[in-house]
Nucleic acid binder design. Structure first.
Length: 971
RNA sequence: GCGCCUGUGGCGGAAUUGGUAGACGCGCCAGACUUAGGAUCUGGUAUCUCGCGAUGUGCAGGUUCGAGUCCUGUUAGGCGCACCA
C-alpha cells in the first residue's frame, strides 16, 4: 500500500481536534509533567522552518512522557504585544489587534499542520484582557510590596509603613533606591504626597527618576537587555542616556536569590554563566574617605565620601581618587579654581553618546581641586573626575591604585601621577599587575606610620583583603559590601500596543485602581503615534480617566481632581506579559485568581522549557524574578519557574546576493569579480573593473544552485526591470551566498508549508531532528530530507503485504527480531532522555532495515515499533496503530522497556591487539573473564607470530571491548 | 581584556563516556530493473599505495598497554559580559 501521507495527516489532524485527544486536566492517579515552549510573537511573516525545531523536540518529549504514563501539560499561546504590529498600525492606521489576530490565525494554521500535541483549550494571548488582568494584578502586588534583605523576601508595604510610624528609617534592612534616614516623628508629620514619594524608594514596583536608555527614533525607553552595543536591539537606532520618570521593577533586590537559584536548576552551563555575568556579583568593601576642598573656608573637615573596591588590600597604593562625571559628589568636591575646567569636562562627557564611550576608551579627565585623606596613613591624595568611572556602579567613586589596575594605570601615566607597587616582585614599569596573587609588601612602606600600626606586609593578597575588611569594619571606616551589576528593570514604555497600567494620578499621587476593577482595558485611540506634545500614544485616548466613585474609566474631559483623575499614559514592556504565562496555562480560564490553589499545587512548575538562548538576559531573568516574587506571595509553589531548560539552536538560512557596481544599475555575475580584503581586514570586498560592488539580497526563490533566474529577478522590483546584467562565459549569472539568520528582510526564508505539502509533516519532523544536535545552530539544507522520507516509506512497507493487507501475524518473534527491537528501545529511550534525537533517527533506520531483512511480521515487534516511532511521526504512528486493530489513540499505549537478556550475545568477537595495534579478531564466549580471554589469546595459533621472540609485558583484556597484549623484544 | 562553547571524510554529523574512528543520511561511483526517470533496489565510497601496508579526529607536547575522548600549551571560529574598580 502506498504511504499516502497527505490523506493520513489530514485525517488524524481532524480526529485529534474533534476528540480533544490532547486535552489534559489534573488527575491524582498520575504524576504530572509540564512541557513548555517559549510562546511565539506572531509576526506577519508566519512560521519558517526554524520555528518548529524546538516545538518538535518538546512535542517528542511530551508524547514520550505521556506514553510513560505521565499526565502531560503541553500548552501553546501567543506573545501578542509587540512593536511590529504597532508600527504597522502607525503606517496604515490598521488597529494592531486586527493585524495580531490575522497573524495568530496564520500561525495556528501552520502549527496545526505539524501534528503537535498541544492542548489548545489552554491557549493564552498576552493581549487578551482576561490574561493581562493578571499581569496588572501582579504589578499592583509588586507596588504594594517591599523587599526585606534580612529574610530575602517580599513583604506587604503596610508592614513597612507601620515600621516607619514607630521607628522611622532607623536600623532598616530593606532593598531601596537610596539610603534615607528619617525619624518616626518626621514620617508622621509628612503629608500623603511626601509619604508616597518616600515609599517609592522601597516598593518593588516604583516610579523613579532614573537614567534610562532613551531611543529617540523609536520614541521610547528600552531595558538594558534591549540595548546592544549602544544601539537598539530592534532597528539598530542610536540610544542615549536620559534622566526620566519611569516605572521600574526592583529586580536588583532579588540579585542574590537569582544567583543562588542557578545552582538548583538544570540549564546549560553557558546560559547560567551568562546570567551570572549579567547579575555580576562582586564582593568588596565600601570605604569612607574624608576630603578637603580648599575653596571651603575655615573648616578642616568638610565631609567625606564613599568608594567601593574589591581590592581593599591595595589601600597603601592609592595615589589618586576618581569620581564619575555624573556623580553628585562632583559639585561638592570641585574647588573654585577648577570650576570652569570641571564644568567644561562634564559638558564634554554629556555630549558623548553611549556608543562613542563604548568604542573609544581614550583617557580623559580633570582635576577637581580637592584632596581626599587616606584614612590609614593620613596622606592627601588628589581627586580627579573621569568618565572611566561609571556613575551607576558601586558609589560612582573609586580609589585608584595604578600599580594594580590597568585602567588606573593608564590614567596615571596620562596625568603623570605616582605609581606605587605593592606586590613583591611585580614589575609595573610597562603595565599594571592586576592579578589577585602574590605577597603584599610596601604596605605600608618603611617608616610610614599607620592607624593603629596596621600593616599588610607579608600577607598573601587573599589574606590582605580579609584583614583589611575586618580592620575597616572594626574601625568604622566603612563596611563589607556586595555589589551587583544587575539593574532594576525599567517597566514603562511610551507605546500603545501593550498592557496599560492600572494606575491613576490622584492629586499627583500614583494610586492603584482597586483590584476588583481589573483589568483596566486598553482604550481606543485615533492615532497610534505619540501626541504632538510628546506624550505617549495613550495621550490620544479620549476616554482615559478614572472615576473613583463609580470605579470606572470615563471621558478625559471630566477630570476634576476631586473624584475623577487622569490615568497612566505609559504601557508595560514586552516582557511583562511573558513573565508569568507558564502559570496561567495551569488554569487559563480562572476569573477569580491567577491560578487556583489546586492547579498550582498539582502542576507546580515547568519541568522542561524549550526555547532560544537569546532570551538569557531578558525573559529568562525577568521570569525568574517574577516567579520568585509570586513564590513569596504563595501563588507560585516553586522557587524556580523552569527546572530544565533546553536551548534549541537557530536554523539559519542561505542568503543569496547579487552584486551591483556601486552607483550604477549594472549587475555583475559573482565569478567575474575581483576579491579584495577590506581596509579593516575583517571583511572581503568585491570589485569589477576597479569599481567596488555592493552586495544586495536577492530572494532565494530566484536562485537555483548559485545561478540567478535573471528574468524572475527583473520582475521582482521595478528598479531591477531596466538593469543591466553582466553574465559569465556560460551565460549564467552567479550569485554569492552566505549563511545568515533566517529573516523576511534577508529574503532567505524557507517555509514549512511547502515541505509539508511535498513530504508531509512526519518527514519534516523527523528531518528537523535528524539535522543535528538540537542545541546547535545550523543552516537549513533541504538535501537530506529525501533520506527521511524514504525511511518512512520503508517502515510503512514493513506493515503491508503486496495486496494491501496488513502484514502482521501473531507468531512469536524470533530471537533476532527481539534483539533488533530491544536494541532500538534502549537506544531511543536513552536518546530521548538527553534530547539526542539526531542519533535516534539513524537507530530507527537501522532497525527497520534489519527487520525488513528478517522478514519480521510479528505483531509484538511491529506494534512496539509503532509506539517507539509515534512521538517522532505521530500521524504515521496513529494510522498504523489503528490499522493494527486498536481503537484508542497510540498516545494511550505504553512506552516499552527493554530487556538486557535479549541484547546479550552468546559469544563476542573482539579485536586482538599487540602493542595497541589490532592484528586480528577472535571470538570469545560472552561471559569470559579477562583471565580466560588472556589464556585464549596467548594459546591461539595466530598469536604466535606476534609473540615469537617477544617478551610479554602485560595483557589487558576488557570484556566486551578489546584484548591488548603488550610485548617487547626479548633481550 | 575576562568568561563560556566548538574544531572528526566532499557535506550534515556518529563513536556505548578511555577500548577496532567515520554509525546513519546527503552527495558521488558502479551495477540491476526499466522506453525513460529527478522512481525503486544492490554494492562501493577517509587519505596515500598496484599491493603488503602506512597515515589519519585544528596544531604541539604529556598521561596511559591504549586518547577524537583526560591533562598542559597553542591556534582558529562562535557566543556572552565589557572602563563593573
Amino acid at each position: 500500500m502506498e504511504y499516502n501521507f497527505q490523506d493520513i495527516e489530514a485525517r488524524w489532524r481532524k480526529q485529534w481536534a474533534e476528540l480533544k485527544t490532547y486535552h489534559v486536566e489534573p488527575r491524582e492517579d498520575r504524576p504530572k509533567y509540564y512541557v513548555l515552549n517559549m510562546f511565539p510573537y506572531p509576526s506577519g511573516a508566519g512560521l519558517h522552518v526554524g520555528h518548529p525545531l524546538g516545538y518538535i523536540a518538546s512535542d517528542i518529549y511530551a508524547r514520550y512522557k505521556r506514553l510513560q504514563g505521565y499526565n502531560v501539560l503541553n500548552p501553546m499561546g501567543y506573545d501578542a504585544y509587540g512593536l511590529p504590529a504597532e508600527q504597522y498600525a502607525i503606517q496604515t492606521g490598521q488597529h494592531p489587534e486586527v493585524t495580531t489576530n490575522e497573524n495568530i490565525g496564520r500561525y495556528r494554521e501552520q502549527l496545526d499542520q505539524l501534528g503537535f500535541s498541544f492542548d489548545w483549550d489552554r491557549e493564552v494571548r498576552t493581549c487578551s484582557p482576561d490574561y493581562y488582568k493578571w499581569t496588572q494584578w501582579a504589578f499592583q502586588k509588586m507596588f504594594n510590596s517591599y523587599f526585606c534583605t534580612t529574610c530575602q523576601k517580599a513583604k506587604p508595604i503596610e508592614r513597612l509603613i507601620k515600621y516607619f510610624e514607630e521607628h522611622g528609617a532607623e536600623d532598616l534592612h530593606v532593598a531601596c533606591s537610596e539610603d534615607l534616614s528619617f525619624s518616626a516623628e518626621e514620617w508622621n508629620s509628612w503629608d500623603a504626597k511626601q509619604k508616597s514619594d518616600v515609599l517609592m524608594n522601597y516598593r518593588l514596583a516604583y516610579l523613579g527618576e532614573t537614567m534610562v536608555n532613551w531611543c529617540p527614533e523609536l520614541g521610547t525607553v528600552l531595558a538594558n537587555d534591549e540595548v546592544v552595543n549602544g544601539v537598539s536591539e530592534r532597528g539598530g537606532y542610536p540610544v542615549e542616556q536620559k534622566r526620566m520618570r519611569q516605572w521600574c521593577l526592583r529586580v536588583s533586590a532579588y540579585s542574590q536569590r537569582l544567583l543562588d537559584g542557578l545552582n538548583t536548576i538544570q540549564w546549560s552551563d553557558s546560559i547560567k554563566e551568562t546570567q551570572r555575568n549579567w547579575i555580576g556579583r562582586s564582593e568588596g568593601t565600601e570605604m569612607q574617605f574624608r576630603y578637603h576642598n580648599p575653596s571651603i573656608d575655615g573648616r578642616e573637615e568638610e565631609g567625606h565620601f564613599t568608594i567601593f573596591t574589591t581590592r581593599a588590600d591595595t589601600i597603601f597604593g592609592v595615589t589618586f581618587m576618581v569620581l564619575a562625571p555624573e556623580s553628585e559628589l562632583v559639585g561638592q568636591l570641585t574647588a573654585d579654581s577648577q570650576k570652569a575646567e570641571v564644568e567644561a569636562y562634564v559638558k564634554y562627557v554629556k555630549g558623548r553618546t553611549e556608543r562613542e564611550r563604548m568604542i573609544d576608551h581614550k583617557v580623559t579627565g580633570v582635576f577637581s581641586g580637592s584632596y581626599a585623606i587616606n584614612p590609614f596613613t593620613g596622606t592627601e591624595i588628589p581627586v580627579y573626575i573621569s568618565e572611566y568611572v561609571l556613575a551607576g556602579y558601586g558609589t560612582g567613586a573609586i580609589m585608584a591604585v595604578p600599580a594594580h589596575d590597568s585602567r588606573d594605570y593608564a590614567f596615571a601615566k596620562h596625568f603623570d601621577l605616582p605609581i606605587i607597587p605593592l606586590i613583591e616582585g611585580a614589575d609595573v614599569s610597562e603595565e599594571s599587575f592586576d592579578a589577585k596573587e602574590g605577597i603584599v609588601g610596601n604596605s605600608p612602606a618603611a617608616g610610614v606610620e599607620t592607624l593603629d600600626g596596621f600593616s599588610l606586609n607579608g600577607c598573601t593578597v587573599k589574606e590582605a583583603i580579609a584583614k583589611t575588611k575586618q580592620f575597616v569594619t572594626e574601625h568604622h571606616l566603612g563596611r563589607v559590601k556586595v555589589n551587583y551589576r544587575l539593574r532594576d528593570a525599567i517597566f514603562s514604555r511610551q507605546r500603545y500596543w501593550g498592557e496599560p497600567f492600572p494606575v491613576y494620578y490622584k492629586q499627583g499621587i500614583p494610586t492603584m485602581v482597586p483590584e476588583d476593577c481589573l483589568p483596566v482595558q486598553l482604550p481606543e485611540v485615533e492615532d497610534f503615534k505619540p501626541t504632538k506634545t510628546g506624550e505617549p500614544p495613550l495621550g490620544n485616548a479620549k476616554v482615559w480617566a478614572w472615576d473613583e466613585v463609580n470605579c470606572k474609566i470615563v471621558d478625559k474631559s471630566l477630570v476634576d481632581e476631586q473624584t475623577i483623575f487622569p490615568l497612566e499614559l505609559f504601557t508595560m514592556p514586552g516582557f511583562a506579559g511573558s513573565s508569568a504565562y507558564y502559570l496561567r496555562y495551569m488554569d487559563p480560564h480562572n476569573n477569580e485568581s491567577l491560578i487556583s490553589e489546586e492547579a498550582s499545587q498539582y502542576w507546580q512548575s515547568v519541568d522542561l522549557y524549550v526555547g532560544g538562548s537569546e532570551h538569557a538576559t531578558g525573559h529568562l531573568i525577568y521570569s525568574r524574578f517574577w516567579n520568585k516574587f509570586l513564590y513569596d506571595l504563595g501563588v507560585s509553589k516553586s522557587e524556580e519557574p523552569f527546572q530544565k531548560l533546553v536551548n534549541q539552536g537557530m536554523i539559519q538560512g542561505w542568503s543569496s546576493f547579487v552584486h551591483r557596481v556601486s552607483g550604477t544599475s549594472k549587475y555583475v555575475s559573482f565569478d567575474l569579480l575581483e576579491e579584495r580584503i577590506s581596509d579593516d581586514k575583517k571583511s572581503k570586498e568585491y570589485y569589477y573593473e576597479g569599481v567596488k560592488c555592493d552586495p544586495i539580497h536577492s530572494d532565494i526563490s530566484f536562485v537555483s544552485g548559485n545561478v540567478l533566474n535573471v528574468e524572475g529577478f527583473r520582475q521582482w522590483r521595478p528598479e531591477y526591470a531596466e538593469a543591466e546584467f553582466v553574465c559569465n562565459a556560460q551565460g549564467q549569472f552567479i550569485v554569492s551566498q552566505a549563511i545568515e539568520k533566517m529573516s523576511k528582510s534577508k529574503y532567505n526564508v524557507v517555509n514549512p508549508d511547502d515541505i509539508c505539502a511535498r513530504y508531509g509533516a512526519d518527514t519534516l519532523r523527523l528531518y528537523e531532528m535528524f539535522l543535528g544536535p538540537i542545541e546547535q545552530s545550523k543552516p537549513w539544507d533541504v538535501a537530506g530530507i529525501d533520506g527521511c522520507f524514504r525511511f518512512l516509506k520503508k517502515a510503512w512497507n514493513l506493515y503491508w503485504t503486496k495486496d494491501d493487507q496488513i502484514a502482521i501475524t501473531d507468531e512469536a518473534p524470533t530471537k533476532e527480531n527481539l534483539k533488533t527491537l530491544h536494541k532500538l528501545i534502549k537506544k531511543v529511550t536513552e536518546d530521548i532522555e538527553v534530547f539526542s534525537y539526531n542519533t535516534s533517527v539513524p537507530a530507527f533506520m537501522v532497525a527497520v532495515g534489519e527487520l525488513q531483512q528478517q522478514k519480521c511480521q510479528s505483531r509484538e515487534v511491529l506494534e512496539t515499533l509503532v509506539v517507539l516511532l509515534s512521538p517522532f511521526a505521530p500521524h504515521f504512528g496513529e494510522e498504523l496503530w489503528h490499522a493494527m486493530g486498536h481503537d484508542t489513540s497510540v498516545c494511550d499505549a505504553q512506552w516499552p522497556s527493554y530487556c538486557e537478556d535479549y541484547l546479550r550475545e552468546d559469544s563476542v568477537t573482539l579485536g586482538v591487539q599487540f602493542n595497541g595495534k589490532v592484528r586480528y579478531s577472535m571470538t570469545f564466549s560472552a561471559d569470559a573473564t579477562p583471565e580466560q580471554m588472556q589464556q585464549q589469546v596467548l594459546s591461539a595459533e595466530e598469536s604466535q607470530k606476534y609473540l615469537d621472540g617477544m617478551q610479554i609485558m602485560k595483557v589487558v583484556a576488557v570484556p566486551k571491548r578489546i584484548v591488548n597484549v603488550v610485548v617487547k623484544p626479548q633481550q
